[in-house]
């Protein structure tokens, strides 16, 4: 069964997407959207929803807000990194796959972490097995698991642990 929190977050998400889709707003459309979103989020679906993993304490929401900027900075840095490597006449790459460990337990946290790793400088998530994430690194600077974890994961994990440990 889904928790009330997961249903509420699901309702808000659906309704916000509907409002954005019908963006010159009118009260009638917003009302119908709210009714349909409420109906969908109250459906007795089996399994647990990863949306329930999100914490809604003020601290978690503040960290979610901060995480947005951390992610944006990493995305811009990774693109400058790509630009440097692609335009460099010698293609400075030394690719390899390293194993890093995560302390996150929830599926939403792991989804956000692996997606963030893919969009940050020089790394792509290849596989997730248990607590180990296998990451393709375009320029391996730390082949051992501990060093790679410190370089790749911990900047995000600090925030994600608070948001959805």
């Amino acid at each position: 069964m889904r928790t009330l929190k997961a249903r509420l977050i699901g309702f808000l998400g659906l309704w916000v997407v509907w409002l954005l889709l019908t963006s010159p707003w009118s009260a009638q459309e917003a009302l119908v959207g709210a009714l349909v979103a409420a109906f969908i989020s109250l459906l007795p679906l089996a399994g647990r929803s990863p949306l329930g993993d999100l914490r809604v304490t003020p601290k978690a929401l503040a960290y979610l807000f901060l995480y947005f900027f951390v992610f944006l900075k990493a995305l811009v840095l990774s693109n400058l990194d790509v630009a440097f490597r692609v335009l460099h006449p010698k293609l400075p790459i030394a690719p390899g796959i390293v194993k890093v460990k995560t302390r996150l337990r929830t599926s939403l946290g792991r989804l956000l972490l692996t997606s963030s790793i893919t969009l940050t400088p020089g790394t792509i998530t290849v596989e997730l097995r248990g607590d180990d994430i296998y990451v393709h690194w375009i320029n391996v600077t730390a082949a051992d698991s501990a060093g790679a974890t410190a370089a790749i994961v911990q900047g995000f994990e600090k925030y994600l642990e608070v948001i959805c440990g």
Partner: peptide, 23 residues
Amino acid sequence: VLAAIGLLRMPDALNRMQAGTKA
């Protein structure tokens, strides 16, 4: 354009993905 150049210049599929996805 950077992504497309990366797709053309990188030596193998995973490295092409690095350029193709991020850019």
